[in-house]
Simulated scan of single mutants.
Amino acid sequence: MSKYLLNKFLYTVDRDPDLVERYRDDPAGTVEWWERTLGPSLLNCHSGEATTWLAFTDEERGALAAHDHVALFALGAHPFLTLTLFIAMFERDHTEPLAYQKRYGELLGHFSLPYPDIAT
């Protein structure tokens, strides 16, 4: 498991409006594509290089594909990265102001200190 790789995915997708839409519409396909093509190039990896930190675990891949911010937080994804990305993807589906942000927080409400380690 690489929290750095997980957070790098969230960060890079959030910074590109086209990737935000692609991830919203085809999460599993976007995760697979990013892990195979964009991720290694962003990390300055040479082709043919293989190490475990250059690949998501099945659990990480599944949480990303499911847009599961609670599971991502438990895996060590930084909550600010998931929040900003998921606001870009899902806030438009809510009519009440801050409805998505409130729901995001409610779903993380069962966590107590100490929180999962989000350091990379």
Rank of each mutant, 00 (worst) to 15 (best):
R103Y: 04
N7D: 15
F9R: 04
D93R: 11
V20W: 00
D26E: 12
L98V: 05
H78R: 13
E106D: 15
W53T: 10
L19R: 11
Y11V: 11
D25S: 07
R15I: 08
A88T: 15
R61I: 02
T82I: 06
T52D: 10
Y11H: 03
H67P: 11
L83A: 05
S47T: 15
T82L: 15
G39M: 03
T120V: 02
D26A: 10
V13P: 03
Q101H: 00
P97A: 09
R22E: 12
H78S: 08
G29R: 07
T84H: 10
P97H: 08
K3Q: 13
H46I: 10
T12V: 11
L75A: 12
K3D: 04
D18Q: 09
V20H: 01
E60Q: 14
N44Q: 15
A77V: 00
P97W: 03
F86I: 13
L43I: 10
G39Q: 02
E106N: 13
L75N: 12
L85M: 07
F111E: 13
W34D: 10
F73D: 11
E96P: 08
L81H: 15
F111G: 08
V70E: 15
G39C: 03
T12M: 09
R24K: 11
H110M: 03
L81Q: 10
P17F: 02
H69W: 12
L10C: 04
H46F: 14
L107Q: 13
F80G: 04
L38R: 10
A71P: 07
F90P: 08
L107Y: 00
S47Q: 14
D58F: 00
G109V: 05
P79G: 13
L108Y: 00
A74C: 02
T52F: 04
M89S: 15
A74E: 04
L10Q: 04
N44T: 13
G48V: 14
T57K: 02
L108M: 02
L5T: 06
L10M: 07
L10D: 15
Y104L: 07
R22H: 06
V13M: 09
R22V: 12
G76F: 05
P116Y: 07
S2M: 09
L107C: 04
D26M: 03
L75D: 15
V31A: 01
L64K: 14
P27T: 09
A55C: 11
V70G: 14
Y104Q: 09
F111I: 09
R36H: 09
A55G: 12
H67L: 02
Y100K: 09
L5S: 14
V31Q: 00
F56C: 10
P114N: 07
S2C: 08
A63V: 00
V13L: 13
T51L: 02
F86A: 02
G105P: 01
L6I: 11
L5G: 01
H67S: 03
L85N: 03
A88C: 05
V31W: 00
F56P: 12
D58M: 02
T30F: 01
L19C: 10
I87C: 07
M1W: 08
L6S: 11
A99L: 06
L107A: 03
L72K: 00
A88V: 11
I118Y: 09
V13G: 05
F111W: 12
L38W: 02
E96G: 13
P17D: 05
H67Q: 13
M1V: 06
A50Y: 11
L108N: 01
D93W: 01
H94R: 04
F80V: 05
S2G: 15
